[in-house]
Every structure is written in C-alpha cells, then in structure tokens.
C-alpha cells in the first residue's frame, strides 16, 4: 500500500463527501432559518439528478445550460414548497414533530413521483468530464473528481459571499437569529424562509447533478444519501456552515477508507456507529450546536 494509493482513496472519498455535504448544508440552512429538520433533502437531490437526466441526457441540451436550468427549476420547487407548506405550518405554530412527519411524507412523495415518471431501472448519462483516467505522477484520477471539487469550491465561496456580503443574505441570517425582531425591522419572514428553502433545494440539485458520474441514478438513491447527509450534519454540528461541510467530507473519506481497508458491506454500519458515538458523547457535533433548543 503506497502513499499514492492512499492519497487516491482520500481524493475519491473527498469527491463523495462533497456530494454528501451539499444536502447536509441545505439541512443546516433550513434548520437555522426555521428550526425545521428537512428529511426530504436527499430526495430533492434525486429529483435534481433526474431533471438533469431529462434535460442533458434525453433532450440533448448542452451541459452548462441544462445544469443552470436544473438548478433554477429545483430552486423554484423549493420556493413553492415553502410557501405552500412549511411557512403556513410555521406561522400557525404547529408542533415541530408534525412538520417533521410532513417532511417524511414529502420524501416518500418525491421518491414515488420519480419512480412513476422515470421508472425503476438505474439510469446514467454520458460523463461530461470525459472518462479517460488522468495520471499525475503515481496518481490515477477520474477527471470528474477534480471537477466536482472545483465546482463545489466555487459554489461555496459564492454562497458564503451571498450570506455574509449581501443585504438579502444578511436579512436571511437575521430571520434565522431573531424572527420577531427582524419582522419588526421590516424584513418579510415568509419570503426569507422561502428563499432559504429555495437555496437549499438548489444546492441539493447541484449535488444531484454532480453525482451522476459516480453512481447511476435510481429513485431510491436519495434515501441512503439523505441518511449519510444527516449523519454528516450531526457529526459536523447542526446549524453550522463549516460543520456541514467538514462532516460531509469526513463521512465520505471515512467510508471510502473503511470500504478499502476493512469491509465494504459493513461500510454503512461503520458510519452509523460513529454517528451514534458522536450523538452519545458529543451531541453538538464537532462545531458544538445547541441540541436541546429549537425542538
């Protein structure tokens, strides 16, 4: 086992981990803005992947326009979901447990919608990044690994600028911190929360688009990714931007290494085991989140 192979595994794990960390980030953003935990995040990712399949794989549009259209369509869906379902429930102070059950229902709904529209057979489209292996020294890498890391890095920097540097982003964070005070300052809470949902759905869609070269699309793939993303967000610290990112990457790398060195069948058990240990001994995650609040 040379260092090059180890590095290669870590890089592959990194690409997978980034795929996990985007829905994890979405969960974190929604949690901050509304105190809701969205179980449907993984299935929104699947839906994004399938929209991309229709636009790029079936309709034959070029890659970049179909990427942008997918993200836009998913963003609109997220906005609509929030305005039609989540905000009215929040406004009427419905028990968070009930809203949580609602997101579970959403997850089942989207999964079956995908199943009815696109069918159960695993589908894939042409890898836009090329499928020839790159060789750098002793390293053998698929080009999509580098592209995924680069695209997500750009996305995250833009997102960070949007949340910290613009007026809308500041308003969104204000709603997350003190809803009543921000409402009195003239911020429209319903719009800001809808915007948060839009943002997190769009991020999940990016993940769904990028995942295709790594694993083929199936209607139920969102389930296992959602579980990993939830593990990532809890390991990293719920509500923390860097926590979601770091948690996702940690889960991706850990499962790749575990699969390579120990056993690939018990890979998922290992991740859940780590998650349970984290929840028991450090429930706040790496970046401590307040566990008992907002519940």
């Amino acid at each position: 086992m040379t260092a090059a192979i180890l590095l290669q595994l870590v890089l592959n794990g990194l690409a997978m981990g980034i795929i996990y960390s985007l829905p994890a980030l979405g969960i974190s953003l929604i949690w901050n803005a509304s105190g809701l935990f969205n179980f449907a995040q993984g299935d929104l990712l699947t839906l994004g992947g399938y929209v991309m399949l229709s636009l790029f794989g079936k309709a034959g549009l070029p890659y970049i326009p179909s990427f942008i259209m997918t993200v836009a369509v998913m963003g609109i869906i997220g906005y609509a979901l929030s305005q039609a379902y989540f905000y009215p429930m929040l406004e009427h102070r419905v028990n968070p447990q009930i809203i949580l059950i609602g997101t579970v229902a959403f997850s089942v709904f989207i999964r079956n919608l995908v199943l009815v529209i696109w069918g159960t057979t695993p589908q894939t489209y042409k890898n836009p990044f090329g499928s020839s292996v790159l060789q750098i020294g002793e390293l053998y890498l698929m080009p999509h690994v580098i592209w995924i890391v680069a695209i997500v890095a750009v996305l995250l920097i833009t997102l960070q600028y949007f949340l910290r540097g613009t007026m809308v982003g500041t308003a969104m964070r204000a709603v997350a911190q003190r809803p009543t005070a921000s409402y009195l300052m003239g911020i429209r809470n319903d719009r800001m929360i809808a915007l948060t949902f839009m943002l997190s759905t769009a991020i999940a869609a990016v993940s769904g688009v990028l995942i295709s070269p790594i694993i083929p699309l199936t209607p139920s793939m969102g389930g296992i990714i959602a579980v990993k993303a939830m593990a990532a967000v809890l390991i990293g610290g719920l509500g923390s931007f860097s926590g979601a990112l770091l948690g996702g990457v940690a889960v991706g790398i850990a499962e790749t290494l575990f699969a390579a060195f120990v056993s690939s069948t018990y890979r998922d058990i290992f991740i859940f085991g780590v998650l349970v240990l984290f929840l028991l001994f450090r429930p706040g995650g790496i970046f401590r989140a307040s566990v008992s609040e907002k519940v």
Partner: peptide, 11 residues
C-alpha cells in the same frame, strides 16, 4: 435520554 427531536429521529 440525551437527544430530542431530529437528533433522535436520525438515530
């Protein structure tokens, strides 16, 4: 004993 809400559900 220690977890509530979504934390417990994910467990």
């Amino acid at each position: 004993f220690r977890l509530a809400g979504p934390f417990l559900v994910v467990t």
